[in-house]
Design a protein around this nucleic acid. Sequence first.
DNA 1: ATGGTGGATGTTCCA
Length: 268
Amino acid sequence: MASLRIATWNINSLRLRVGLLTHLIEALRPDVICLQETKVPDPLFPTEDLAPLGFPHTVFRGMKGYNGVAILSRVPLAVMDTAPDWCAKGDCRHVAASLQSPGGPVELHNFYVPAGGDVPDRAANPKYGHKLDFIAEARMWFAARTGLARAVLVGDLNIAPMEHDVWSHKQLLGVVSHTPAETAGLDAWMNAGFVDAVRHFVPADQKLYTWWSYRNQDWRGSDRGRRLDHIWVTPDLAAGLRSQTILRDARDWPRGSDHVPVCVEIGV
DNA sequence: ATGGTGGATGTTCCA
């Protein structure tokens, strides 16, 4: 059985941090890297900087200044254009591809879910409403995909769904990223066809984070993190799950992202 | 209760 190592990272500007991908590749040895917040329009995608890294197959969807997603792959892939323009905003938050694998194609979705602003109230904060609408639309789209199989969904989903996906469940219940409306919405989306590939290895009572705020200087000491970055797989792939890695050390890379890479290895 | 930092952009928005 062949294995596939899939990594996801909110890189917070691909052009600024393209050099850090070397460290990610050394540490995780991924076959596929999914990036979010690339912040680069497609005509300016840094193809030449990426060429020496050994990921010749790429798909990307970017725009000026904000958002943007990309998939870098060692194995051949074909872009999938069947998904809708979420919330009809044209905002480059999703790209999907079909990966070539010895066991057959693997469907890979890379998402950057809206952060949702500061105030957890639809009426006062349209960004929060957009976030809830986005995850509801995504849930419905996947729920309608009868026969969905051999699929992997990754990305910065901007929601920490479980009690121990945040440093303080009680203190964050009213904070965007961990409100009951968001966590229920994310659970419903995942349950439309996926299982949590990282929690597959880590018990629910163990703290797990992938993001620490830039505003928290001593991030390791205070450890006030949240698990915002996720990897889900369809149940048929769950038996093939081999390992997971959350690369905490990446939070200390020079001029690093506020998110760290997450990786799983799957027999496919 | 507030502000703390960082990126892209351009004198502010987004996270």
